[in-house]
Design a protein around this nucleic acid. Sequence first.
DNA 1: GTCTATAGATCGATAGAC
DNA 2: GTCTATCGATCTATAGAC
Lengths: 206, 206
Amino acid sequence: MSGVVSAASSRARAREAAIPVLAEVFREHGYAGASLALLGARTGLGKGSLYHAFPSGKAEMAEAVLDAIEAWFETRLYAPLRDESDPEAAIRRMLSETEAYFRSGGRACLVGAFALTEGRDRFGDRIRRYFAVWCDSLAAALRRSGFTDAAAKGLAEETVAAIQGGLVLARALDDPGAFGRTLERLRPRLIPGDRDRTGADGRAVG
Amino acid sequence: MSGVVSAASSRARAREAAIPVLAEVFREHGYAGASLALLGARTGLGKGSLYHAFPSGKAEMAEAVLDAIEAWFETRLYAPLRDESDPEAAIRRMLSETEAYFRSGGRACLVGAFALTEGRDRFGDRIRRYFAVWCDSLAAALRRSGFTDAAAKGLAEETVAAIQGGLVLARALDDPGAFGRTLERLRPRLIPGDRDRTGADGRAVG
DNA sequence: GTCTATAGATCGATAGAC
DNA sequence: GTCTATCGATCTATAGAC
């Protein structure tokens, strides 16, 4: 009994330590491009150790990474958007957490990258859930902040798409600022009350 | 001389026929995920034929595909945006051509997929140019249609990012409609005149 | 010009020493 | 639990028959 627990904990600890590094490698190279040799080199683990922690191999590593990402977003973004009493505060927090998470555009979105290519067939359910829950949670906050149901749904979808597009553009242009500008263009549309000095199209007002 | 020309033409013809199929495979699987076996099976060509048409192998195939995509966008979208006398007509054309090209969200953007992962280091210049020229050409049309320089630049960047994000979201949610809705949300902001009542996010009316 | 056969490297995954 | 050695499959690329 304690043996089972301790073995599970040990394996869990090894996974926990490896997952952030595995995530970066998948993020930078995609699923097919992240070879076991590369994953081993970056984590500092031999293949034996990797397979001890993730018995089903590369697919299990990617699943663990996707689960960790989902858990992070659920705790830091989705739950506050759905539950916090002040929806505008939750939306502001979403923007700042998002900018920090993606390192101001220097970091790509692993889930978005998987969605575009080979990860889609393998991890379709997790990918769909990541984006669907983001859209639904943001729409809930927008509704509570005064938007109609239809407007909230549309603006939430538009926002999540804009964030992904901003990340693509930042990587493509090698200009991380493209991501930050995307977030700042979204802010006054998500929180109209924060909009005092600029128009939605960026032109100065008054 | 004629021997050289005819040999070049023959090779060019083989490339021309193969490129659209190669593009689809790269689009669906990414660069690393598109194996020569798969590229050969889908084009119906043996490896010998593929290497005859593309002597430098897979990298040259991807370069040829990226060049073809750039040429298509330059002719159908970028040049009209920069040159056409009616900028709003060019922008409308951009929206309809974009929707058709990406098959209403059923098709991913190969350049965007490459930008996120392994293609970035290999094809960085082509990827950067594809997005930079799109942004610049659209900004030129927006300026001619009445936007200030700063507003045109910002809205162009926002538009190109939104298109990419719409494609990511459509693939992720397995809901092509997410792409079409993205385009329709962009339309009234790009062409305020197409909107009956111009609101706060459009240009001033009257 | 297109094919088959295959080289040489690397892939994901496993076995067994320690 | 981590390593090295190695498996068979697959990879990119090449050679040579036709």
